[in-house]
Measured scan of single mutants.
Amino acid sequence: MATKAVCVLKGDGPVQGIINFEQKESNGPVKVWGSIKGLTEGLHGFHVHEFGDNTAGCTSAGPHFNPLSRKHGGPKDEERHVGDLGNVTADKDGVADVSIEDSVISLSGDHCIIGRTLVVHEKADDLGKGGNEESTKTGNAGSRLACGVIGIAQ
């Protein structure tokens, strides 16, 4: 089992970053940390998408990683996509320092995120509470600013 993974985020604009993942036990939580720069100040949706395909930019990554066919939600919700990591918060300089621990994603097994795409979005994720159909699919997080395929790390 891989215990570490990394993702280099890039987009068409100024947004870029490096996100690290570490899972010490196969059924334990995954620590997610790193930094994203070039964002507007505020909240930005942060999700693992189904495919590791960036051939047409971030759009070819498909929908959120959702092997259990659930509705979109927040990272602490029972009803959520596996890939729903909530929001990252950018400061006035456009930098989001990421520090998350998640017990639904994994670096092995059915919820493995390796080979899938991590995406940072234009807007805040409403965590499935926006009151419309799009909220239950995407959290109304808007366009995909930057993305990268999650790969095994040393």
Rank of each mutant, 00 (worst) to 15 (best):
E50N: 06
D102Y: 09
L43S: 12
A5S: 13
K24M: 09
V32L: 09
A61S: 09
G83E: 03
I105G: 03
G42V: 07
G142T: 02
E78K: 06
G38N: 15
E122R: 09
A96M: 03
E22D: 10
D93T: 10
V95L: 12
E122D: 13
K37I: 08
C7K: 02
A124G: 14
A61H: 01
K129W: 11
D91E: 12
S135Q: 01
T138M: 08
H121T: 02
G34F: 02
D110S: 11
S108Y: 12
G13A: 11
G109K: 12
V149M: 07
K24L: 11
D93A: 09
S103I: 14
I105W: 03
E122V: 06
N87D: 06
V95Q: 08
P67W: 07
G28V: 11
G17E: 00
W33S: 11
G17Q: 01
G13T: 15
S135F: 03
V98C: 08
E41Y: 15
F46W: 06
L9A: 13
V15Y: 14
D126Q: 04
V15S: 11
K92R: 13
N140C: 12
G94M: 11
L43M: 12
G94E: 11
V95D: 06
L9Y: 14
S35V: 13
I18Q: 13
E101V: 08
K24C: 12
G38K: 05
G151P: 00
A90Y: 04
I19Y: 03
S26V: 15
A96V: 05
V120P: 00
A2M: 09
L68R: 05
T138D: 01
E134K: 04
G42L: 09
V82A: 10
S69Y: 08
I114Q: 06
V98P: 05
K4P: 08
S99C: 07
V88L: 12
K4C: 13
T89Y: 14
D126F: 02
R70T: 10
E22L: 10
K10H: 14
G130W: 10
G128R: 06
N87T: 04
G94R: 09
V149P: 09
A56I: 08
N87L: 01
K71E: 14
I18M: 07
E41Q: 09
I19S: 02
E79Y: 06
G13L: 07
N20I: 06
I113Q: 00
R80S: 06
H44I: 04
D84I: 02
A61Y: 02
T40V: 13
I19H: 02
V95F: 07
D84M: 02
C147L: 01
V48Q: 00
K76W: 13
D110F: 05
G94V: 09
N87S: 08
G131F: 04
P75T: 10
S135Y: 03
N66T: 07
H111G: 11
S26I: 12
G115L: 02
D91R: 05
K123L: 11
V6G: 06
H111L: 12
E101L: 13
A141H: 02
V120L: 12
N140A: 07
L107N: 06
L43V: 09
A90I: 11
C112T: 11
V48W: 03
E41V: 12
G74V: 03
T136W: 07
L39P: 04
C147N: 02
A124T: 14
G83I: 02
G13H: 14
L118P: 00
G139M: 01
D126Y: 00
S60T: 08
E79I: 08
L85W: 05
T55R: 05
L145N: 11
L43Y: 08
L127Y: 11
I18G: 14
L43T: 08
I36C: 11
K31S: 13
G28A: 15
N132A: 07
G128Q: 03
I105C: 15
